[in-house]
Design a protein around this nucleic acid. Structure first.
Length: 116
DNA sequence: GGTCTGACCGTGT
DNA sequence: CACACGGCCAGAC
């Protein structure tokens, strides 16, 4: 019992992050909205910290709203995050995804969560 | 068990 | 346009 609205905040974050397609990227805020916690973007970032050890969660495809690789320091190696993104066809310059909008993947829109 | 911090975001001045 | 601030909430100390 005592089933609160977000029992598994972290699991929900991972569930969304897992669905980010190859070659695309999304933002912390977008994921936060997708799980119904629009103002908890910070916690999404915090959750991704624990996702580093999970291979099924592509944490490198999650950046901030400006397309900046704010979490790159949490990856083993300084440029691993950038390399992973570039290996998927994205261009990263000055710690930022070039033409971020072009590769942006909005979970709320793509998964049809708007009407829920 | 209070306090601080953090891979963020929107809004106000 | 730059900067400051509040919000949200889970862990670490």
């Amino acid at each position: 019992m005592s089933a609160h609205k977000n029992d598994n905040f972290f699991e929900r974050v991972y569930a969304i992050a897992r669905q980010i397609p190859y070659g695309r990227a999304t933002s912390y805020g977008a994921i936060a909205r997708a799980i119904g916690a629009a103002k908890s973007a910070r916690m999404v970032g915090y959750a991704m910290n624990g996702a580093s050890m999970r291979e099924d969660v592509p944490a490198h495809r999650v950046v901030n709203r400006n397309g900046v690789l704010t979490g790159k320091h949490h990856f083993p190696g300084t440029k691993l995050m950038q390399q992973l993104l570039e290996s998927e066809g994205m261009v990263v310059k000055d710690d930022q995804i070039v033409e971020f909008k072009k590769h942006y993947w909005d979970p709320v829109k793509e998964l049809g969560l708007e009407d829920i």
